[in-house]
Design a protein around this nucleic acid. Structure first.
Length: 804
DNA sequence: AGCACGCCGACT
DNA sequence: GTCGGCGTGCTC
């Protein structure tokens, strides 16, 4: 008999290996590597992934696979291997690696139930049992627990009256919709129409409809098109003229929209020069990584589109990664216009079912291009011809939970297997990528100027300290305010940008300086205006806003800081005639509201668009001539090695929103530290100088791209335990690495406590340490017991982006 | 992760 | 003497 190796759905160190199962004979053709199976594991049934088949096992008493969950593998050979690679590179469990590659819908749901045994006599049951099963043959285990019947049911089970079962379920079903089809050909239909009685107008219309339509039609469409009621259709079905059946349909989030097809645009000389190496790499099936470095508006997207075109002509497929916040309808539109139905879109705005449908289109070879956020890098294509990562520098390509992978690394790995190019595009490349391009690891492609030869917008940097000195206490500098007024008069549009929602308000006592903190996490509570509440963004703790300072009893306690809401208030006060659209987490919470707000702005329904991060990307409206950055430096002071880089990128990005069309653009950046190089150089849009300066800083501090980083974070309920474990780890790591490595720690995390757990960390900087991974695994092994049963948690991030 | 097994204290 | 607490170790 055949034996299958299975990775089971239990994310734990002890189960992070394959388990062997017998393959029932009748399933031998279905059970192949990459299919999900339902297997018995201990007393319960769980999901697992078949990774291999064999004829012998070291184990004597093997159990049988209960059932397959797929008829075709959900992971192909390449993805199974990629899973191994992911596990090795991020130190995650194999099951986590597999699950991250699939839509969440394929993750199993488990249900523990009690069922009445067959042929059991109702009279024999205890009263409580009868009550439990009142109205059915089964009950959920939760119900049993709630009624306090656990031990009683155990007795019933021993007597053989009831049985405990474990069910494995998929999260979504394929969506099925009723379709109607004509069973007769056209000539017969014509006859039938004539045979119908004069009263049967509706039926006549339906049949007439089928004269011009062959094949099944969705019932809803049929009713809509003919305007008849369901009764008429039913009658025809009864007569045997039509037939009805349920057929699978895809939930298409873009179904409502029509995309006009658009052919390729002529390339400029610069674009032509940039695309040639990519095309030849595609042609020669050569793996190569390109860094496409071009300012905003220099036409990177057209290069992507034409590269993809040539990939499609070869019969191959393409993955395009776009940062989540840039995955706007505008962006999608460009791809759909060029490639129509060959495009699948994947982003977090879709429901689990919609994501699953998009994924199935890829799996079933119905699409050739996927445009999506980070996780789209795992799209199950078999003949990849190109991978494109737009806005390559975006930190959202790094997943901040297990498996902590970077989409760029996965892209390069996959492209190497498929022998195809990777194109990393950015106006402000990450230092890592640019350094690699300089070293010749990546091929640098330049797009030096904007396509329409529009000059970059003029940028003015305003020193807010100066404003304050001159008595301007408002959040708008005089320059910005004047320009704002000017735009409103002219009927032109302005985008006002506020860094991060995080910068939002906190509550502080103006007498003693007391700030309200979260009782569970060492972090300031954020003030939310909705319900006059203070909230913690880490643990969700909520409390009311104090009216008196708990420290000094002063009544002068109030909120501080500048959230978007507060800016909006001030705007309406200062410019009551201005129509403002606010975009932040509060106003874009609901699905589609993002798009609605942007559309309204595009239609000219507002003068000012006010928002956070999310408006920095992709906005490309002709009427925007002014961009204001209210506080450029809030991000600069975060404890983050990339804070300068991020500030520069963000400011450059935002500035690029102005004057992309005929009207020239202006940018006003307000800051308290105008002398900082990341702000100054963003003002002149001088990436090269910024790069050089920042590289120097990184070299001095031994940061990437000169050194690799690994961050180990240890957390425990008890402070001393967290410290002592981190201490031991630090010492162990130091002993196992070379002299060149720098091991920092133990130090408290920038957020020293989250959800009542103390957090300590150890940061390792190194250039080449072949022993590092072995050492890290040894640590995880050593603390395995304590991490599974105790309160101890150890997280490891190879190449962290957030050092918190 | 669950779950059973097993060894100790507080009760009918 | 039993119920139930959670420490320990296993799951093909």
């Amino acid at each position: 008999m055949r034996i299958a190796s299975v990775i089971v759905d239990v994310p734990a160190k002890q189960t992070d290996k394959t388990f062997d199962y017998l393959v029932p004979e009748h399933l031998e053709n279905v059970i192949v590597p990459g299919v999900r199976v339902n297997v018995p594991f201990g007393p319960r049934n769980i999901q697992g992934f078949v990774t291999g088949l064999k004829t012998e096992s070291d184990f004597k008493k093997l159990k049988q696979i209960v059932e397959p969950l797929d008829l075709t593998p959900v992971l192909n050979k390449e993805l199974l291997t990629l899973g191994d690679w992911l596990t090795e590179h991020t130190l995650c469990y194999k099951i986590s690696a597999f699950q991250v590659m699939l839509p969440a819908a394929l993750k199993a749901k488990y249900e523990k139930k009690v069922i009445l045994a067959a042929h059991v006599k109702w009279e024999l049951l205890q009263e409580e049992t009868k009550a439990l099963f009142m109205g059915g043959k089964e009950a959920t285990w939760q119900e049993v627990v709630d009624r306090g019947l656990v031990s009683m049911l155990k007795q019933e089970a021993e007597r053989g009256y009831v049985e405990v079962i474990y069910q494995v379920k998929d999260r979504v079903r394929k969506k099925k919709v009723k379709h109607i089809q004509s069973l007769l050909g056209r000539p017969q239909l014509t006859v039938e129409i004539e045979n119908l009685s004069l009263q049967a107008k509706g039926q006549k219309q339906v049949l007439a409809f089928f004269l011009d339509h062959t094949g099944p039609v969705e019932l809803k469409t049929l009713l809509g098109d003919t305007g008849v009621s369901q009764a008429s259709v039913k009658a025809l079905v009864k007569k045997g003229i039509l037939s009805e059946e349920f057929m699978e349909v895809y939930r298409d989030p873009y179904a409502e929209r029509e995309f006009k097809r658009q052919g390729p645009l002529p390339l400029t000389v610069a674009q032509e020069k940039a695309i040639m190496p990519i095309l030849s790499s595609i042609e020669e099936e050569r793996h190569e990584v390109f860094l496409l470095y071009g300012v905003t508006g220099s036409g990177k997207t057209e290069i992507y589109l034409q590269s993809i075109q040539s990939v499609l002509e070869k019969g191959e497929e393409a993955i395009v990664l776009v940062p989540e916040i840039a995955l706007t309808p505008q962006m999608v539109k460009r791809f759909k216009e060029r490639f129509g139905d060959l495009v699948a879109v994947m982003h977090s705005g879709l429901s689990a079912g919609e994501k699953y449908d998009e994924w199935r289109k890829i799996q079933r070879r119905e699409v050739k291009v996927v445009v999506g956020a980070r996780s789209a890098i795992f799209a199950p294509f078999e003949n990849l011809g190109i991978i494109i990562i737009d806005e390559e520098h975006e930190t959202s390509y790094k997943q901040e939970e297990n498996p902590r992978y970077h989409a760029r690394d996965v892209a390069i790995k996959r492209a190497a297997t498929h022998r195809c190019p990777v194109v990393l595009g950015s106006a402000t490349p990450s230092l890592e990528s640019f350094a690699r391009a300089q070293k010749g690891v990546y091929t640098l492609l330049n797009l030096p100027s904007r396509m329409n030869e529009q000059p970059l917008p003029s940028v003015e940097i305003i020193d807010m300290r100066e404003e304050l000195r001159e008595g301007n206490r408002s959040m708008f500098s005089r320059v910005l305010f004047e320009k704002l007024q000017d735009r409103i008069e002219k009927g032109e549009q302005t985008v006002l940008f506020l860094n991060k929602r995080g910068h939002s308000s906190f509550v502080m006592c103006r007498d003693c300086g007391f700030v309200v903190n979260c009782p569970n996490c060492d972090i300031t509570l954020t003030y939310h205006r909705f319900q006059e509440l203070m909230k913690c963004h880490y643990c969700g703790h909520e409390e009311r806003v104090p009216t008196i300072c708990p420290e000094c009893n002063s009544e002068h306690i109030r909120y501080f800081g500048t959230g978007t809401q507060k800016v909006e208030e001030e705007l309406t006060k200062l410019l009551p005639e201005a129509r403002v659209i606010r975009m932040d987490v509060d106003t874009t919470g609901r699905k589609g509201s993002h798009e609605k707000l942007l559309n309204a702005f595009q239609e000219g329904e507002a003068d000012i668009l006010l928002g956070t991060q999310m408006i920095a990307k992709g906005l490309d409206f002709p009427n925007i001539t002014l961009v204001g950055v209210l506080s450029a430096d809030t991000m600069l002071h975060l404890p983050d090695l990339r804070s300068s880089e991020k500030t520069f990128q963000l400011l450059t990005q935002v500035s690029g929103r102005a004057g992309r069309h005929e009207l020239p653009g202006e940018v006003v950046i307000q800051t308290y530290t105008p002398e900082h190089y990341s702000i100054e150089l963003a003002g002149t849009q001088d990436y090269d100088r910024f790069y050089n300066q920042e590289m120097m800083a990184r070299k001095i501090h031994k940061y990437p791209p000169f050194y690799y980083l690994t961050l180990i974070t240890v957390s425990h309920e008890e402070l001393m335990k967290a410290v002592s474990v981190t201490e031991k780890i630090t010492r162990f790591v130091t002993s196992r690495l070379s002299q060149e490595a720098v091991v920092l720690g133990p130090v408290a995390s920038p957020i020293p406590r989250i959800k009542n757990r103390y957090r300590y960390q150890c940061l390792i900087k190194y250039k080449k340490e072949p022993e590092l991974k072995t050492a890290l695994k040894a640590i995880l092994d050593h603390y395995q017991q304590e991490t599974t049963t105790g309160s101890l948690q150890i997280s490891m991030d190879l190449n962290p982006y957030i050092l918190m």
